[in-house]
Amino acid sequence: MNPIRITLAALAIICCAAGCVAPQTGSEPASIDAKAAAALSSSFTSASPEWQQRLVQDEVQKQCSAARGKLTGDLASAIVQSQQATLKYPEGGLMGDWKSGEKVAQSGVGLQFSDKPGTVPGGNCYACHQISKAEIAHGTIGPSLLGYGKLRGQSEAMQKYTYGKIYNAQAYMPCSLMPRFGHKGILNEQQMKDLTALLLDPASPVNQ
């Protein structure tokens, strides 16, 4: 067999492999994408296969990374559409208990390798948002949510929007920095209902 042909065949395989991992919207050479993927797969050798899965991007993560978070036009609409399709609402009302919601908003633990197995993840909402006047140790990455329900009311449509936004923020804003708490299984239904109540309940400190 012709050695040049073997080389060409091998090259074709390598190029295809590189092409397959490259995001469609990326502007860098595919080789850097392939090398970044290789760096990732060699950097966490003590991780279990389950944890290794965290290094594999889903389609939304791929697109938002390649676009540096600034996705526009058809690609942006496509994400909103695909993420809208992920929304799931529980039976029997979306408003939980705001007091429990406040605890979920305060808790920043969960899903880190340093957490004890079985730790119930929090929403860590205060890391990024101002929520109540009392908590001054709030972040500013996301918008202030002070007076959220007072401004918007508690209609069924508003409850659905609020729960949906917590469930999957990218169903409304493509490449949002906010974790997709329901879609990625970070928070459970009750926690998301409690957060919905924290934001909307007229008795919640958010609306005082």
């Binding site: 993560q61 990374s65 974790p179 990625k184």
Partner: peptide
């Protein structure tokens, strides 16, 4: 170049980079 790529690489359950 790889570092720049990784800096913006969103992944994991929280979509963080």
């Amino acid at each position: 170049a790889i570092g720049e790529k990784l800096f913006h690489f969103r992944t994991g359950p929280y979509d963080f980079a």
